[in-house]
Design a protein around this nucleic acid. Structure first.
Lengths: 214, 214
DNA sequence: TCCGACACTAAACGGGAATCACCCAGCCGT
DNA sequence: ACGGCTGGGTGATTCCCGTTTAGTGTCGGA
């Protein structure tokens, strides 16, 4: 589509960018990287493995991405965007804010358990391995998620239904509690846990009961 | 003690092991490794750096430790042992089990914030980086901590004061909630958080209020 | 026909963990 | 007193990692 427009505008000069290969390669790399990353995690998804999977030299990846972290962060962006859309969808529903919070946290935890490697990369990774600047885009997406999530808490606080603390701190605690549960389930799969469904609903009930009146 | 016995048995043959140097070196390495590890984290504490700090070749470390992970896990063991002792101390106090739980969780979170790199290595690390078998000893220590921590929950459950769930699942949820809070504070120091003291007490109050009757 | 941009590559670099083949000093039994 | 064994220690090496450099082939446009 865009190529056509460009061609119509300047039939004899441009029409160079959408030559085809460049854009396709980028997608191929992302697809291969995502497969390997999901299967083997951050450390397992090496540049060379990804390049081999695409059928290209390892150097070629640097034509399309600044470095390894950019590739994996771009994958994470896609996943977080899905999470954000889930949250936006929930906040559009005409239900009371407490139910919204519960739905969002439940969606959050299911997302984490469904995308354990992505979740670990984005939410468990220490700031040490990937610099803050590189993460900027991904972090901003995460912030938008949290922002969207804390909105119902502001409504709850405005209605005077918070047992203590501020909307901000209550939202942080609720998020942290659910994060703790899924991060332990993901990173310590060898421990003998109660059923994850039980734990999730116990965490939700407990936190909401402890934070919100009624 | 054993050395003495051996010497008494065969005065002219053994008495070789406690030659001195070996033991000292091991301690020196652990001390240097701990310093670097606390200062620079898991990735920053390389074999070469540790060896340089001791004033010895990198190969020498392999005389005393199987590999890098063993060094860092041995350091972690020491830290967790301190945590375990805190817990044992608390469980000896003649207070009601709910207060014990609160004290233990508070000690746990303070420990985490005081030893962020150790905490991250032991409680946030994915199983991928260090194999389960290697971690066996450290994991067992962690299990003893959790076991000790869940004891008051069993008392609470026995008294019928659990709002829902079992002693096991309630203990897991309480632990997970506090873990989530400190792990986020540690691994996402760039976010703008409410004061960590506020968050900690809100998490404690909220969880206990939500999990336990009265 | 030549030029420059572009996708790509082979080779190399520096730095990680871990291993190898060796040293060398001290203690053993003789 | 002495030759051999042993155990701490070493330098060189291996393998893999992410990343860089210098160069190759191809193709659209003048």
């Amino acid at each position: 589509m865009q190529a056509v427009t460009l061609v119509l505008k300047k039939p004899h000069k441009s029409a160079r960018k959408p030559k085809g290969d460049g854009h396709l390669r980028r997608g191929e790399i992302l697809a291969a990287a995502e497969r390997i990353f999901i299967a083997e995690g951050y450390a397992g998804a090496t540049i060379r493995k990804i390049a081999d999977a695409v059928g290209v030299s390892s150097t070629a990846l640097y034509m399309h991405f600044r470095d390894k972290d950019q590739i994996l962060l771009e994958i994470s962006d896609g996943a977080i965007e899905r999470l954000l859309n889930l949250n936006i969808d929930i906040s559009a529903r005409p239900v009371d804010p407490v139910s919204q919070v519960r739905l969002m946290l439940e969606a959050y935890m299911r997302f984490a358990l469904d995308n354990p490697n992505t979740y670990e990369l984005v939410f468990c990774g220490s700031g040490a391995s990937i610099s803050v600047e590189k993460q900027a885009g991904t972090l901003e997406l995460g912030d938008r998620c949290f922002e969207n999530f804390s909105e119902p808490f502001r409504e709850i606080a405005a209605a005077g239904r918070l047992k203590s603390g501020t909307a901000q701190s209550a939202a942080e605690v609720a998020w942290a509690g659910c994060h703790g549960l899924v991060s332990l389930l993901i990173t310590k799969p060898n421990r003998t846990w109660s059923s994850s469904d039980d734990l999730m609903s116990l965490m939700l009930d407990g936190l909401l009961d402890g934070l919100v009146k009624d």
